[in-house]
């Protein structure tokens, strides 16, 4: 199929940037979206044009590295997939496809479609971990009984790959879905409950410090999340936050 791509080009963080138009022909419907961009970049290199910079790594929907706001939606029009899992069969011959970077002030653009999502790393570093006692007396995790429901919910929360689609989709650029998934995956398990109070307070404070907006419960994040992280996590984080502040 033949397509018209409207791609955001921006040389650097300080550059103004603009949408540029690139026609592309003979696109196979079996290609992944990123493979289509690979083909475009080969054509651009042949024409001595700077190739389009975009984030990618595993191309299996696990690493959380790929992003892109495609035709007005994070990771494109398909559901429960990352951009690397999106296939060109989702588009029609003659379509015009808008490709933009994830936009949020907390995710500054580095180049073209590449954004700096290290704010998520800093939020994780503020509390998204379990401190392990290395004295030699650490109990084997498998010997601690955990209710099946709690283990399942914690596992579902832990499938968050930190891609930032929630922030990109939210009209307020809120990171609540990401932070709440990280809070939930630990707070539901006995190993994580020891530091639960400090964790939720520190991660929420860090989230605010990084400049993410307020959650207004539109639910856009849950719909666009490639891993289907539930809004229930946000409600749980709100409960944990209230509880932690009452007990502190």
């Amino acid at each position: 199929m033949n397509l018209t791509l409207k791609i955001w080009r921006q040389k650097s963080n300080t550059d103004k940037g603009s949408l540029e138009t690139y026609p592309i022909s003979d696109v196979s419907e079996d290609m992944s979206f990123l493979e289509m961009l690979d083909v475009l970049n080969e054509e651009l290199i042949e024409k001595a044009i700077d190739p389009v910079a975009f984030d990618h790594d595993c191309r299996e929907g696990i690493c959380g590295m790929c992003s892109l706001y495609i035709n007005g939606e994070a990771h494109g029009p398909d559901r429960r997939v990352t951009t690397c899992q999106l296939h060109m069969r989702k588009f029609k011959d003659g379509d015009t496809i808008f490709i933009e970077p994830f936009r949020a002030n907390a995710f500054p653009i580095i180049k073209d479609l590449v954004v700096d999502r290290s704010a998520f790393d800093r939020i994780q570093q503020s509390g998204g971990f379990v401190s392990v006692n290395t004295s030699g007396n650490t109990q084997d995790a498998n010997s601690i009984p955990i209710p099946k429901d709690d283990a399942d919910i914690a596992f579902d929360a832990a499938t968050c790959i930190g891609c930032g689609a929630c922030v990109a989709s939210c009209k307020n650029s809120s990171a609540m879905l990401f932070v709440s998934a990280k809070v939930s995956q630990f707070s539901l398990l006995p190993q994580g409950q020891v530091e639960a109070k400090e964790r939720v307070i520190n991660m929420v404070n860090k989230m605010d410090e990084e400049g993410f907006g307020n959650c207004t419960n539109t639910g856009a994040c849950e719909v666009e999340c490639p891993k289907g992280i539930s809004l229930d996590n946000i409600s749980r984080m709100n409960r944990e936050f209230i509880s932690a502040n009452i007990k502190k």
Partner: peptide
């Protein structure tokens, strides 16, 4: 809160499709 939230994204998308993921009253 509305003003604060607007400050979190000062450069908007050229093409956005919010109706695909959220209701008009919520936005």
């Amino acid at each position: 809160l509305d003003l604060r939230n607007r400050k979190s994204r000062t450069f908007n998308y050229a093409y956005n499709k919010p109706s695909a993921n959220s209701s008009w009253p919520s936005r």
